[in-house]
């Protein structure tokens, strides 16, 4: 394992499998009456959230607390950031407080990468702009593996707003590493220019792809980032790219439906599909805590690695 988790692309196949296997063991902890392990006693994890988030922050907080780490939550609202403090000065403050790990969410792509140059602790990217969200990809892969077994050769279809999605990029990179075949389905306006260089296929025809999919992952239409006319209307988007009961019926019987949340019910996913037994949406939240425990354990649980390189 490297010292930081900034991009899903940094993980080798062995690293990724180690995280998933570790999570498999840690999943039992969530079912015990004492949901706590002493492993990270005396270590400090700072949750540095410059962007709104409920589930990711709570998930990291629960994960760190279950490993007995001390957790400091920092959100940009009500902090010195609103007084104009820069990321670097915030980082130096954390450094002075002795943070062993910093979990960062930031609206600027690359913020975790910069932060890694300023603090000694491990950096965990909890979402940076439209760039990456590696722990989401890990929990998605973990949820898929729990339902379907090993991911080699599995066909995963990711549908929706790929352009603004850090989840999509991290998933494509991680799933390729794990040997799955990924197909992106989106309106051409919602695909990034660089998508040709990603290790995946592209399609504009959801109905054609569905019968061949083992997993269909719906992405949220990010209204807060819809600053241009990416598609004519919500209804048209929903008709062409939304997952409703008809489309669910076209998927193979074993196939599962995923969504990273928060959902726009009725937009990219119909309520009855989201609540069907083939949807892993609730499991994904449970698995999120487990996978983040695995990541924090593997980054912080052992000896401090010498030098920043490894």
């Amino acid at each position: 394992m490297k010292r930081h988790l900034i991009s899903a692309g940094d993980l080798s196949r062995d690293d990724a499998l180690l995280i998933l296997d570790t999570a498999e063991e840690l999943a039992q902890v969530s079912q015990r009456s004492i949901k706590k392990l002493p492993t990270l006693r005396g270590r400090t994890v700072v949750n540095l959230f410059f962007e709104d988030s409920t589930r990711t922050r709570i998930s990291f907080e629960a994960a760190a607390k279950r490993l007995s780490a001390d957790v400091i939550n920092f959100s940009a609202k009500g902090s010195s950031v609103s007084k104009g403090e820069s990321l670097k000065d915030t980082a130096l403050t954390l450094q002075a407080m002795g943070a062993d790990a910093v979990v960062i969410r930031h609206s600027a792509s690359g913020a975790p990468h910069r932060l890694a140059e300023w603090v000694d602790g491990s950096i965990v990217n909890a979402g940076d702009g439209t760039h990456e969200h590696p722990t989401q990809a890990l929990l998605d892969a973990f949820s898929m593996r729990r339902r379907l077994g090993p991911l080699d050769g599995r066909r995963v279809t990711i549908v929706g707003d790929v352009l603004h999605s850090r989840v999509a990029r991290s998933n494509v990179l991680l799933l390729a590493t794990l040997g799955a075949q990924v197909t992106l389905v989106a309106p051409p306006t919602l695909l990034p220019v660089s998508v040709g260089s990603w290790p995946c296929e592209i399609s504009y025809d959801l109905d054609g792809v569905l019968p061949k999919s083992d997993v269909v992952m719906m992405l949220r239409v990010q209204r807060e980032r819809m600053n241009a006319a990416f598609f004519p209307s919500a209804r048209e988007y929903s008709r062409r790219y939304g997952l409703d009961r008809d489309r669910l019926g076209r998927m193979p019987d074993h196939a599962v439906v995923m969504h990273p949340g928060p959902m726009n019910r009725g937009m990219e996913i119909a309520a009855e599909v989201a609540d069907s037994p083939r949807s892993t949406i609730v499991e994904q939240v449970t698995n999120g805590v487990t996978i983040r425990m695995a990541v924090l354990y593997l980054l912080l649980g052992g000896a401090e690695l010498e030098g920043g390189a490894q």
């Binding site: 180690l18 570790t22 840690l26 392990l37 354990y297 980054l299 649980g301 690695l305």
Partner: peptide, 16 residues
């Protein structure tokens, strides 16, 4: 996860 020498070596894989 309960060992007292975890900090002496890189994080190890878990057993069953």
């Amino acid at each position: 996860m309960y060992r007292d020498d975890l900090r002496l070596r890189p994080a190890r894989p878990l057993g069953r």
